[in-house]
Amino acid sequence: MNVFRLIGDLSHLLAILILLWKIWKTRSCSGISGKSQFLFALVFTTRYLDLFTNFISPYNTFMKIVYIVCSCVTVYFIYVKFKATYDSNHDTFRVEFLVVPVGGLAFLVNHDFTPLEILWTFSIYLESVAILPQLFMISKTGEAETITSHYLFALGAYRALYIVNWVYRYYFEGFFDLIAIVAGCVQTILYCDFFYLYITKVLQGKKLSLPA
C-alpha cells in the first residue's frame, strides 16, 4: 500500500459518498445515469467475489464491502426509492453495447481461464467504460449539476492516482498487472475532456454546461 493508492481509494470512496449524499439530501437522482450506477454495482459484485476465497487485509475487506453496499444502495435509490425523479428518457445509452463486448474480451484476454478470474477481468474491463452512460447523458442534456461534476471529478482523480500508484509499484516493487494498467489508462482518458471542463468552468464557480 502506497500513499497514491490510499488517496485514490479514499477519493473513490468520496465520489461514491458524494453521489449518495446528493441523492439523499435532494431526494432526487435527476442528472444521474442509473445505467452507469448499475454497471458500477455489477463491477464491484463481480470483482469482489474473492471476499469469499482470499483474505488480503482488514482494510481491503472493509473497503470492498463498503463499495459493494454503497453501489447497491445507489442503484436502489435510483430505480426504486427515488424512481420518480430518474430521467430515464435522457439515460438512453445502450448498455448491451458495453457489457457484451467486454464479456467477450474477458473470455479472450485474461490471466487465467477460471470463473473467478474471468469475472475479475470482466469487472476491470467493464469499470473502464462504465462511466460512458453518465457522460453520454451529460452530453445529451448539455449540462450537469455542480455536485454531479464534483462526483465525476473525485472518480476521475481516483483513476489518475491509480496510474501514479502503478508507476510507483513498477519502480519500487517490480509489480505490474498489464490488464489493470491498460484498462485503467483507457478509463482515465475518458475523463480527460471532463477534467478540462471541470477546471475551466466548475472551479471558476460556473455550472458545467456544454456549448450548444
Binding site: 493508492r5 474473492d50 500508484n165 498487472d177 489493470a180
Partner: peptide, 10 residues
C-alpha cells in the same frame, strides 16, 4: 511476485 500480489488492489 506477480502471481501472489495479483488483485490486492481495490
Amino acid at each position: 511476485k506477480f502471481e501472489e500480489a495479483l488483485h490486492d488492489e481495490l
